[in-house]
């Protein structure tokens, strides 16, 4: 059991899509008295279960809207599942989507400390990692520039450098590698691979089957919130490509 790092048991997520968005108190009261608040139920995930061991790396594949990102959000603790449960034994470093953790008015340097704190690092730890982050992101000259002036490539470099500091037990990579130039993508891939050697578990979402095959040893294929296939990365990917 010790070896299991993520256990996803029968997880379901339901969103209530309000047909007409009720946003005001008055409307809400009137409608709830009348009983006319109508929802469209939408199951983003339905009875998803899998288990990952320490050092595994899992690729999540599937078409747009199949629930890949929702699955990652549930594991990261951002969304609470409607049913089922997720057990995570370890620290999670979510590779936050472009710029989400950044305050655009602050400089890159200030954002490094803000984002580090979001990941749960103390100021002292961040001072130790600071030089490494600057070096990896190759943004030496821009650290005192507000990030609103950054290009998307620069942002993703910074975000990736921050998220991969230290030794997180789990790293979540959600299609961030698709930005940035070819050289930087390779740099990121090699950093991920070296983290995997140190037993970091990777959760990887990408539409690039090539990347998934290269980085992962297991894969889950999701379709409309259901697990269509689960297993070895080669098998799942080839089945997915044939479909």
């Amino acid at each position: 059991m010790e070896n299991t790092i993520i256990e996803v048991n029968d997880v379901s997520i339901r969103f209530n899509l309000e047909r007409e968005r009720v946003n005001s108190l008055k409307e809400y009261l009137i409608r709830s008295i009348k009983g006319t608040i109508e929802y469209d139920e939408f199951w983003a995930l339905r009875n998803v279960s899998f288990r990952l061991n320490r050092g595994d790396s899992l690729g999540l594949i599937g078409l747009n809207g199949c629930g890949k990102s929702t699955m990652l959000k549930v594991i990261a603790g951002v969304l609470k599942p409607t049913g089922g449960e997720v057990k995570v034994n370890g620290s999670i470093a979510p590779l936050i989507e472009l710029g989400a953790g950044f305050d655009f008015d602050l400089t890159a340097k200030e954002n490094v400390f803000l984002n580090g704190a979001i990941l749960g690092y103390s100021k002292k730890q961040m001072l130790e990692h600071y030089d490494g982050i600057v070096e990896f992101s190759e943004l030496e000259e821009f650290m005192d520039v507000p990030v609103k002036n950054f290009s998307s490539g620069m942002l993703s470099r910074l975000a990736f450098a921050i998220a991969t500091i230290g030794k997180p037990d789990i790293l979540i990579v959600d299609e961030v590698l698709s930005v940035g130039d070819f050289r930087f993508q390779q740099k990121c891939e090699s950093r991920i691979q070296s983290m995997m050697k140190e037993d970091t578990t990777i959760l990887f979402v990408s539409h690039s089957i090539e990347q998934v095959k290269m980085l992962c040893n297991k894969a889950v294929w999701l379709e409309k919130g259901h697990v269509k296939m689960l297993g070895d990365v080669e098998d799942v990917c080839s089945a997915y490509e044939c479909s």
Partner: peptide, 15 residues
């Protein structure tokens, strides 16, 4: 998350 509280507070004042 105490360091985060500091960072968020400083951010509020700075921005």
């Amino acid at each position: 998350y105490r360091p985060l509280l500091n960072e968020l507070t400083v951010r509020d004042i700075k921005t």
